[in-house]
Design a protein around this nucleic acid. Structure first.
Lengths: 250, 250
DNA sequence: CATTTAAATTTCGTATACAATAGAGAGAGA
DNA sequence: TCTCTCTCTATTGTATACGAAATTTAAATG
């Protein structure tokens, strides 16, 4: 599996040249770990690490210049967010969402993101609108120049920010999780014609919110998410062990 | 602080009696860790570990007969579920939810649990109804005999099971998290007159679901959750460092 | 007698070492 | 030549050891 090379490819780190001398540990460790976490998380969300890719602890430890202990902590966190799957004696790999999970995730987004629109429309400020417009523009630019990875990431960020504007941190965090998982779902079931959100959907949504039309924004988000889900090619993957009898007759 | 004793004192775990001898490590470690996780989680949910209680790694390691490594893993998981708070150089303690968090959690429950009722009403089976009735009865019994801890746990389980019946695993898991946190919120802001759900609310809800009245079940759940939230004494706690000038005049 | 500073102890953060297991590869037999 | 089994290697699971930071305690001085 060539996927595993993605991680074990060596010395490409450039993080600490030469022999891995013990870097200053007075360096605030928490921030370092957070940076590593974001690094891996982003790689997964941007499809630079594809579903099924193995994530060996040793390799990651070497790449990032920390010991396996720290890596394990990060992998665990990613596992709880369901971005990676931890198989007991087999290690970590990027999660390959099932069709059922994909359905659930989009149903959840439908319920929560739509339900949040009314509150967002009420609370949104001029600054927020500027920021969202900026994100939408960046996303369009990325799409136009063919940088799909970037576009996917920005799209997720857009939806996350939107949820944050509701003022409900718990629901915002949940939406953020769902968006991460959606990126993974796009990687597996995405139709490589148009991935992610339609080009101008986000702009229209911002417009509705700016005008304070919460109800219409909600309906728009509903259609928006339905459109994304409809663009997926959700076919149940073949069973783990193919049923040879059925395939070849008896 | 007497709270910290809660952990170091008792061998009340009942998980492995006697001195912590090195148990057979061929023993499937994953299950063991899961059992410890549940043990701590339950203690928090049942208010046997109160918000603010410190959870020292050494003490937990000794009580459960594993090394700190395993305990740290479990504490991390609990922290991601926001049942415990991990302060960088200070260790773990049971989370003390803020008033804002409480508000967010109940708003989230309102949105998700109510939104699920329609689907639950459609999919519920005879067996499900029996199981739910059973839980409701156990809860009533526990309340009557004054076992508040048990009642709180069962009430959370009831709401979790209900969400599971929607068939959406992602949303069900989210609801489970929210219920755990709600237990914590009850511990801090609960009015010790009537805590948790009204005695017969759950039975009425089951009745509505059995009759297939999804819409009415939704409305009932809405009132049910509003009632719980209303029963809380949500007052912003005093600032960390009290403003002595204001208190004593200048 | 109060206050401040310094030492000591407690407790967490990280690395490393060792044990156990699953997977891969080689060899033998049919 | 294919398959089955055995061995060996690669990788994870767990414990322990060491170092750093913070709190607490004690002592000294104003």
């Amino acid at each position: 599996m060539s996927q595993s090379q993605l991680v074990s490819e060596r010395k490409s780190t450039g993080i600490d040249g030469g022999p891995a001398q013990r870097l200053p540990r007075t360096d605030n460790g928490t921030e370092r770990h957070d940076a590593i976490y974001r690094s891996i998380s982003d790689a997964v969300i941007e499809h630079r690490l594809k579903p099924g890719a193995r994530l060996r602890e040793d390799a990651l430890a070497e790449v990032f210049g920390v010991s396996r202990t720290g890596i394990r902590k990060i992998l665990q966190r990613l596992a709880l967010e369901q971005l990676v799957t931890l198989t007991p004696r087999r290690g970590a790999s990027v999660t390959r969402p099932t069709a059922d999970e994909a359905k659930d995730v989009f149903a959840a987004r439908q319920m929560v993101e739509c339900g949040l629109m009314d509150e967002v429309a009420k609370r949104i400020t001029e600054d927020n609108i500027r920021e969202l417009r900026n994100l939408a523009r960046q996303e369009r630019d990325a799409l136009r120049s063919g940088e799909q990875s970037t576009a996917i990431k920005i799209s997720a960020t857009f939806h996350e920010r939107l949820a944050q504007l509701s003022g409900n941190g718990t629901l915002a965090e949940f939406v953020a999780r769902l968006c991460s998982r959606s990126s993974l779902i796009l990687a597996v079931y995405g139709n490589s014609g148009h991935l992610g959100c339609e080009t101008h959907d986000h702009d229209e949504l911002i417009q509705l919110l700016e005008e304070g039309h919460g109800k219409q924004a909600r309906d728009f988000m509903d259609r928006h998410l339905k459109a994304i889900e409809a663009s997926l090619l959700i076919v149940e993957e073949a069973a783990e062990v193919p049923d040879l009898y059925r395939i070849f007759g008896s």
